Simulated assay, not measured.
Amino acid sequence: MTLSFLIGVDGGGTGTRARLCDTRGQVLGQGNAGPSSLSHGVPGAWLQILQAVERAFAAAALPTPRWQDCALGAGLAGVNAPEQAAAFRAANPGFSTLVVDTDSFTALVGAHAGEPGLVLIAGTGSVAEVWRPDGTRRIAGGWGFPIGDEGGGAWLGLEAVRLAQQTIDGRATPGPLSEAVCRATGHDADSMLNWCARANQTAYAGLAPLVFDHAETDAQAAALLDASVLALDALVHALDPQEKLPVVCSGSVAKRLQNRLPSVLRQRCREPRGDAADGALHLLRLKLAEAP
């Protein structure tokens, strides 16, 4: 077997990115595909990952090789569910080396370039993870939509839909946010129910930008962003109550909310030194270095 390529994958509830490198770490290309969170199912996750990988080879103007000539590291939403993670590993289509961890941990490793720190992720979902100087790691949040992921995009969208439902019922006063949600989902109960019956976490997350768009003109939208900030701050505090470690905010929602975070937390925020695909590649290289 000849190892020719290293691939780092960042897979979440909204999309998948695959970064293709040669064995020296030189980036050759990148490909994107649909969501590969394991909540969408293992076959669907592999389908999107392989599509992203094939597109990375196409972007590099290279033919897709045999998978046994490639090593793949992946950070995926849903890997913290042991049965899903085991099923994903068992479905490996043939990569010579496969390293899989949570998307939060690969984001953490990439953000701090393999050094101790904390990452706060809020995109479609929400989670925080810490890697302490003593080598221990711990996670807060990441329980998945709809039971958890407070403060993330799908949660914001769900809360916005609840507000719109209340205005349809007459339980709440219509405002710019509820009107915008109704335009997207339906102005009457039947239309709203049909939309909700079809919607998944990605669909709800697609409504989150409406909350940001109307926060300056709608007190209800501003209140939802305040609630999101409180939820995200609680994740960080649970992992680092001494408030000592550097923090990187990752994901579209966390980045847009960074200036709204409490000042003590905001002062600890740093620019990321890399992303989740970099983190997946870092873990992959560590695994390969351990091989005899």
Rank of each mutant, 00 (worst) to 15 (best):
A111N: 06
A81T: 02
A87T: 02
P133W: 08
G75P: 12
A77F: 02
A113N: 12
A107Q: 05
T64M: 15
T124G: 12
G73R: 10
Q84P: 00
E115Q: 15
T136C: 14
V127Y: 13
A74F: 01
N92E: 08
V119S: 08
G114T: 01
R137S: 15
R66F: 01
D103C: 11
D103K: 10
I121C: 06
S104H: 05
A77C: 10
A122G: 08
T136K: 14
F88R: 01
R66G: 12
I121Q: 05
G117E: 02
E83M: 07
G110C: 09
G73F: 00
H112I: 00
R132D: 10
W131S: 15
P82E: 05
W67T: 15
F95N: 07
V109G: 11
S126V: 07
L120E: 04
G73N: 08
A111H: 01
I121R: 04
R137T: 14
T97C: 14
A86M: 07
N80W: 04
R89S: 05
A91N: 04
I121K: 02
T124Q: 10
D101Q: 11
D101I: 02
L62K: 11
T136V: 06
V100K: 05
L120V: 02
D134N: 15
P116E: 09
T64Q: 11
A77K: 05
L108V: 03
L72A: 10
W131N: 11
V99I: 14
S96C: 13
D134L: 10
V99A: 10
P93V: 05
V130L: 13
L76Q: 05
T97F: 03
G123E: 06
A86T: 03
A86R: 15
Q84E: 09
C70A: 15
E115Y: 00
G73K: 07
A81F: 09
G135M: 11
F105H: 15
P116W: 06
L76N: 07
A111L: 07
F88N: 03
Q68N: 13
L76C: 07
A122I: 03
P65W: 03
A81Y: 07
D101T: 14
T106R: 08
A86Y: 04
G114E: 06
S126E: 06
A122L: 02
A113I: 00
T64F: 14
A87P: 06
G75D: 07
C70Q: 08
G123C: 08
P116L: 05
D69E: 15
V99N: 11
G110T: 06
A122S: 12
L118T: 00
T102R: 06
P65I: 02
L98F: 13
P116K: 04
E115T: 00
L108H: 03
S104E: 05
G123H: 01
L108A: 08
D103H: 10
L118D: 02
G94Q: 08
A74D: 04
R137K: 15
A74K: 01
A90M: 01
E129W: 03
G78A: 08
G117W: 00
V100H: 05
G78V: 01
V79E: 10
C70D: 07
W67G: 07
A107R: 04
V79M: 11
G117V: 00
P116I: 00
A86Q: 14
